[in-house]
Design a binder for these strands. Structure first.
Lengths: 171, 171
DNA sequence: TCGCTATTTGCAATCGAGTTGCATGTAGAT
DNA sequence: ATCTACATGCAACTCGATTGCAAATAGCGA
């Protein structure tokens, strides 16, 4: 009985998904980490440090803590870390548990949002190139999301002129 | 005769590849731009601002000029701009002239170098996801390059422990 | 339940890739 | 040869991310 009780105390069965994940990964369940992981679990899209911190302003948790918590989540393999072309890290909990063949990420160059394209299966990296040991794959798609595409032509045209490289004849 | 002479003067046939490209793209052929584009043309791998600037220290050209020249090359479509996971832009001249289906880039997490995997053809993005207007595709592979892989096990093991996320049981 | 210790947090300072403003220089057109 | 729009150098700046250190605390054993 005593032994059983100790086992229970060492690895309790947390109902809250955030706490359960952190317990399984042997990360200390601090108030800040639990709050951050809950926000990530609730989000359908990868989030930046800033977006997460914004949702936590009422808690008074420091932005450095957000950085450091995300770092430890990433090191523990709990979250994916993607960079969608604007030099800003985005984090997402991913249930695929794989770093080598995950879904592509789509970035809208008008509204800037990043989405996970779960429905797209990626080519396996088994067919490795000779000499390289390939461990991870990231696929980014960029363009215009449905919401932005449905806006007026004028708006879209203007943004294209500002943000997109011009074509050149021939190199 | 006079007319022919004027045509020749307007679009002269530059022998130097860098000057020819810039002429075709209607970019001013300044000393700095020519030097930067030559470095890129000579390089087999994508280069960072810093790597390019380092090769030009003797010229006294300012680092801001390097940034701005690369920006204009990118806007003109002469170079590709990739971000390999370390929040640093890398630039490469690419003969494919396409932004939508280019080759993947490989980053070695030990030596940090980025290579273009020309021999790998990428899946076409014709099969577009409904609602999205996909314009660009970037594919990154990460792992260990042949050179680093051939080094001693001890060295590699050490680096893995330091840089790679640990595996976790199950999320 | 209490106290100990390794880990985490908050705060301030710092880093560094990239950008901006402005006066000066220059490529390329006339 | 001259003129003008564009390119450059310099200094200051932006901002996402990191670091150092003292204070707080999660989780352990007693």
């Amino acid at each position: 009985m005593t032994i059983r009780w100790r086992i229970m105390r060492e690895r309790p069965n947390y109902c809250d998904p955030a706490e359960r994940i952190m317990n399984e990964c042997r990360l200390r369940r601090t108030k800040s980490r639990i709050a951050i992981l809950r926000i990530l679990l609730d989000s359908k899209t990868p989030l930046t440090h800033e977006e997460i911190h914004e949702q936590m302003l009422h808690t008074g948790i420091d932005r450095v803590t957000v950085y450091r918590s995300l770092q430890s989540f990433w090191e523990a393999g709990i979250v994916h870390r993607v960079e969608a072309g604007d030099r800003v890290w985005r984090f997402a909990v991913c249930s695929c548990h794989s770093r080598s063949h995950c879904h592509p990420h789509f970035t809208c160059r008008l509204c800037g949002r990043v989405e996970c394209l779960f429905e797209l299966t990626m080519p396996s990296i088994e067919e490795s190139v000779s000499g390289y040991q390939i461990e991870e794959q990231e696929v980014y798609w960029r363009g215009i999301c449905g919401q932005c595409a449905s806006k007026s032509d004028r708006t879209i045209k203007k943004s294209i002129d500002q943000s997109s490289p011009k074509n050149h004849a021939d190199v």
